[in-house]
């Protein structure tokens, strides 16, 4: 817990001194405008809140992949990885804390798209299920953080981390049902999607901002948490393996 807190505070300091990581907060409202425009054009008011939720998920995923995922790469380049590894704290928990810090900022995108909907298009998200909405957002952020730990560990081993994150984000948006519900994707994709917490998150998020009651909310939220925890667990294992390998090869230090 102390490690988590240390990571959380560290990232807050870093963001405060260098707000680059907040870039997606500029793009989220723009995406919201684009998606809303499309939905309006096709005359589907029933899809309006869906259109507003897509940029929120995109922002969270973007932050998880682009920023959180490259934390270790950055530390390695600044020769920080070795002293951190030599400390008695588990790197995975520190990373999780740092990523959650970033996620908290990512969650601000929800308020942005809400404002865009209201001010630009005059639609208001129906807050019929505030508790469900809140829990879905929080658990999604947690699960994203778990996923980002895995990415962080994998990316530090690749030579071109940025190409990798760029080429993974779009497939993830698709498979995660970020733009459109997974249900309308081809059948063979469904099993792949259903093991991704993102697809559960996006369905649940859409359900929470619609007027109809949210069906089997708790089991679905449980899936988000379960799959998110699993990604963190996988992240820890991958991290352990990666660190061992790097200690053997001498690659913890950037040349």
């Amino acid at each position: 817990m102390r490690a988590f807190r240390a990571g959380f505070a560290l990232e807050l300091w870093i963001i405060r001194s260098n707000p680059d990581a907040l870039m997606p907060l500029f793009t989220a409202p723009l995406f919201a405008i684009i998606f809303m425009a499309i939905v309006r054009q096709s005359g589907r008011p029933d899809l309006e809140s869906d259109a507003l939720m897509a940029p929120v998920l995109m922002t969270l995923l973007w932050v998880a992949l682009q920023h959180a995922g490259t934390l270790m790469v950055g530390d390695r380049w600044q020769a920080l990885l070795e002293p951190i590894i030599a400390s008695p704290t588990s790197l995975a928990s520190v990373l999780l804390g740092r990523i959650m810090s970033l996620m908290c900022f990512g969650l601000l995108s929800f308020f942005e798209v809400w404002a865009v909907g209201k001010l630009v298009f005059g639609v208001s998200i129906p807050f019929e299920h505030p508790v469900e909405l809140f829990l879905t957002l929080v658990c999604t952020a947690l699960a994203m953080a778990g996923l980002a730990v895995t990415f962080s560990a994998l990316l530090v081993m690749t030579r071109n981390a940025y190409t990798f994150t760029n080429s993974t984000s779009f497939p993830l948006y698709l498979l995660g049902g970020v733009f459109v519900p997974v249900a309308i994707l081809p059948d063979w994709i469904q099993p792949v999607s259903s093991i991704l917490f993102v697809s559960w998150s996006s369905d649940l998020l859409r359900a929470s901002v619609n007027e109809a009651p949210v069906e089997s909310f708790w089991p679905r939220l449980g899936m988000v948490l379960l799959l998110g925890t699993a990604s963190f667990a996988i992240g820890r294992v991958v991290l352990h393996y990666v660190l061992r390998r790097m200690r053997a090869s001498g690659e913890l230090a950037a040349a």
Binding site: R5, I14, S17, Q78, A79, L80, P83, I84, T89
Partner: peptide, 26 residues
């Protein structure tokens, strides 16, 4: 203590660097 210019968070203050390290040492 490794020598050289790297190995610190440059965007943070000296104090913040140390406090972070303190947390890593529990």
């Amino acid at each position: 203590v490794f020598g050289g210019e790297r190995g610190l968070y440059w965007r943070l203050s000296g104090r913040q660097n140390l406090e972070y390290w303190g947390a890593l040492y529990k």
